[in-house]
Design a protein around this nucleic acid. Sequence first.
DNA 1: CCGCCCAGGCTGTGATCACAGATCACTAGC
DNA 2: GCTAGTGATCTGTGATCACAGCCTGGGCGG
Lengths: 233, 233
Amino acid sequence: MSSSSALAELPQLDRRTLGDTTYEALSDLLAAGRLAPGDRLSLRRSAAVLGVSVMPVREAVSRLVAEGALEVSPNRAIRVPTMTRVEFRALAETRMAVEGIAAARAAEQRSEEHLAEIHRTEAAFRRTAERADPDSAMAVALNRDLHFAIYAACGLPPLREIIARLWLKAGPVINLDLRAHPERLLQGFALRRHAEALRAIEARDGAGAAAAIAADIGEAAEFIMSRGGLRDG
Amino acid sequence: MSSSSALAELPQLDRRTLGDTTYEALSDLLAAGRLAPGDRLSLRRSAAVLGVSVMPVREAVSRLVAEGALEVSPNRAIRVPTMTRVEFRALAETRMAVEGIAAARAAEQRSEEHLAEIHRTEAAFRRTAERADPDSAMAVALNRDLHFAIYAACGLPPLREIIARLWLKAGPVINLDLRAHPERLLQGFALRRHAEALRAIEARDGAGAAAAIAADIGEAAEFIMSRGGLRDG
DNA sequence: CCGCCCAGGCTGTGATCACAGATCACTAGC
DNA sequence: GCTAGTGATCTGTGATCACAGCCTGGGCGG
């Protein structure tokens, strides 16, 4: 066929269902901390807001429930999960371990393109975080971009997906806290840890990169746990 | 209330929806290798087989698709994903890293109860694997029990869930191969690596446990990749 | 004035219907 | 004999309806 090469190049039109769109919308709300732990969610109300029927919302919610980003209580109420202190600590430790691995591999296997992208996102985060009046919502997004630029360089797509799901679970509690207390995290520790990670990745120092990322996660978690706001004692 | 302690003990009756049941049924089929990579799945046919309407199947399938255990092709056909060689290698490397961490933590933090359970499952697997005519289906189940007995001892529930999802993705290709060639894996390497892991966990040797588990996973993956059966070259 | 109770409206779950698109077997035409 | 068209059938997706259970607010009895 003479047109085979041309046909092979068209972007195979992604089949976006309404369920996918709804899933993305809810994911963004969750990752941005717009939905706080304990908030209830109604299928019908969400469907009305998004202008669709309940079916796409049902599918999106069932996905998020499967991922642990939402939960359905025995009363059949959909809520964003509230974590106990020990649950949050376990999640943070898991993140330190898994994201540490990803950072180590990223340092060892990075290409120059990946390094450039990491540099770019680090600079963007730094510019926002160093402003006198930082936009916390933007800082959250840029922090996420930086972390995932690193994880994209690790060469293991499954690992990247795992981390994305972990962020979906941790997002509400972290970003909710960041909204309430935007003054602290942005200024000090995160910037330092990011710089350490960047240097380690440049030097192909896997252990150093893992330590920097783990410290970044651990310090943020420690700060949030000291703030209270989590269930239990 | 005088009955509060008694009420707290009743098993909070798990609300099992038909969707949950369907999800479990499909998960078992996947984990057991009864569904091979490339197999198609029909919502209506599955619903008919399970004796429910399509709705519960839809929910279960959407969950499995979200986890990557199933995929829906652009043609709107639900299939169990076929992996390319490089995808399978990336998955295996991710498993080696993540399950290695879990094994290391299990070795360091295990309780005596966990150790006893690991001993028990290892013995059960050994008994089945050393038989002259091993039941491969049972060996698969017991191997799974052993691995997850270890991961349960790591003290991080989120990590355990991550690993469960990884097994859901790897299950079809691994177990399909094991069905086709049951003679090899059972006899030799797995038993040795399991014994190494057990000794390391007994000795609270985290690095040793991680190495043993990683070797177990890596050797199985290497064997499967040498067998072919995966797409690409 | 406070506490209980019951009815109405909400919830998620499941079933059924409607529809666009893809697949596949069959047939007509070269 | 073989290819190309074509219609029946099956696919997932989305909407709508039905239903049992919870939650809550207003009214009644103490």
